[in-house]
Every structure is written in structure tokens, then in C-alpha cells.
């Protein structure tokens, strides 16, 4: 995982399907952006089935990370101010559906 591993990202959930990842991030975090597959964050390129959703909470960024042998994890990286600024500038903002 390179830099992602070096940042000691917190694993929030493991072995999710991609629809579950979207639901997890949208339902638990206040701000969300849609990005295309291959979006570069830290030193990884996000693998996934569109739409890929990344969440923001404070200075933390929450994103899906797929490993071929182990499925998809949801990671939280703290203090990701530069990545958050880039995400806000380049991602497509999405809102929570009103219930």
C-alpha cells in the first residue's frame, strides 16, 4: 500500500462489495464526492465500479481501497488537507438523499 500504509490509515470496514462501500461512506460521513476509477489519492489509484464515492470528515478523508486477493476495504486517512482540497476542486459533489 506504500504511502497509504505509511500513513497508518484506520480500517473502518473490510470485505465490502462496491455498492456497500458507497452506502457506508454516504451514510456515515457529512461530505461526499464522486471520482472516476483510477483517481489518484496519496500514492494509490482507486480501483472500483463507478460511481466511486470518497468522504470527508473534518481533516480526514475516507475512501475505498481494493486488494485483489482480499476485496475492498474502507480506509480513513487523517490530516489529509491537500488531498481534501484537490478532491473538492476535482470531484463531483454529491448530497445525501432526503428520507
Amino acid at each position: 500500500m506504500g504511502c497509504v500504509e505509511a500513513r497508518h490509515c484506520e480500517i473502518l470496514a473490510s470485505y465490502l462489495t462496491f455498492p456497500e462501500c458507497r452506502e457506508f461512506i454516504i451514510s456515515r460521513f457529512p461530505e461526499h464526492y464522486e471520482v472516476p476509477p483510477g483517481y489518484h489519492i496519496f500514492d494509490v489509484y482507486i480501483i472500483g465500479i463507478p460511481p466511486i464515492v470518497i468522504g470527508i470528515e473534518g481533516d480526514d478523508v475516507i475512501f475505498p481501497y481494493t486488494k485483489p486477493c482480499h476485496g475492498t476495504f474502507i480506509l480513513r486517512a487523517q490530516g489529509a488537507i491537500e488531498e481534501i482540497a484537490r478532491l473538492r476542486a476535482t470531484g463531483k459533489k454529491i448530497s445525501k438523499k432526503k428520507k
Binding site: 462489495t17 462496491f18 472516476p36 476509477p37 483510477g38 480501483i47 472500483g48 465500479i49 463507478p50 481494493t66 486488494k67 485483489p68 486477493c69 482480499h70 476485496g71 475492498t72
Partner: peptide
């Protein structure tokens, strides 16, 4: 042969 494979295929289809 598992869901992560579909994620890789979707990614390749996009990039």
C-alpha cells in the same frame, strides 16, 4: 472469479 475482479474490469473499462 470474485467481486474484486469486477472492480478491476470496471476500472480498466474506464481508464
Amino acid at each position: 472469479h470474485k467481486e474484486s475482479g469486477i472492480s478491476y474490469a470496471a476500472t480498466m473499462s474506464s481508464i
